[in-house]
Amino acid sequence: MLNNLKYVFKKYNFLLRQLVSRDFKVKYKRSVLGVLWSLLYPVLTMAVMAIVFTNVFKFSTPGVNYLVYLMSGLIIFNYFSEASNLAMSSVVANFSLINKVYMPKYIFPLSKCIFVGINFLLTLIPLYAIILLTGTGLNVYHLLLPYGYLCLFMFTLGFGLILSTVAVFLRDMFYIYGVVLTLWTYMTPIMYDIAIIDHPLLQSLLKCNPLYWFVYFSRRIILYGVVPELNAWIYCMVFGLGFLLLGVLIFKKNQDKFIYYV
């Protein structure tokens, strides 16, 4: 079993690399600014949001810098929305290949989550630039951040596997998920603090959102310079590992049927 897994991993590792590097080449080939866009894009989005929410809606986060607050949440949500979206369409988009040559089908959602993941790592550069420029400063607990990001990756991959399975059987999913994502943006405390919601039921409802915990985990470290509470550690892992297992299970159970829907 383990040997078999090792063999499959070794055999398809090269394909995985090729798929990821293909996405990179295609994405940056034609744009003059190239990779710089990956750095610039979240900064510009952040700037727009900051202007709208501080001036129009008068949002504020007492005690911490609002720009860092925004940015730390934004990069997490952006990762999730882009990776899950690409993962969803990845299987359908590669039907012509699946129909002709055998390869493990999970490789398509996985390669998308990795590709966006590398982009995510690039967006850490503007995040840290803003952390330093705003005087928020660094602390030793930043070393704990990879835990939260790893859980985010697992959650996104699991979710992407589920989405890509559903999308094979139900093409409406592409439209439905677009709406869901819009709703999800507002349900995740990216631009506001969850404390401003004074309805206790609604507040606990918002905490059922897995993304809340990944955002919360990283903000405790970046903004407040403390070790996240134990429940944050647990929720991150439960959502991350739980969705990954669920996604793998659902995908595995259905993948042999994909071919009939080509």
Binding site: F14, R22, K25
Partner: peptide, 17 residues
């Protein structure tokens, strides 16, 4: 969108090489 050189590697990987 990729060049011939890049496609040789990509297509090769898909074929399992």
């Amino acid at each position: 969108q990729l060049t011939a050189r890049e496609n040789i590697y990509l297509n090769g990987a898909i074929m399992g090489y």
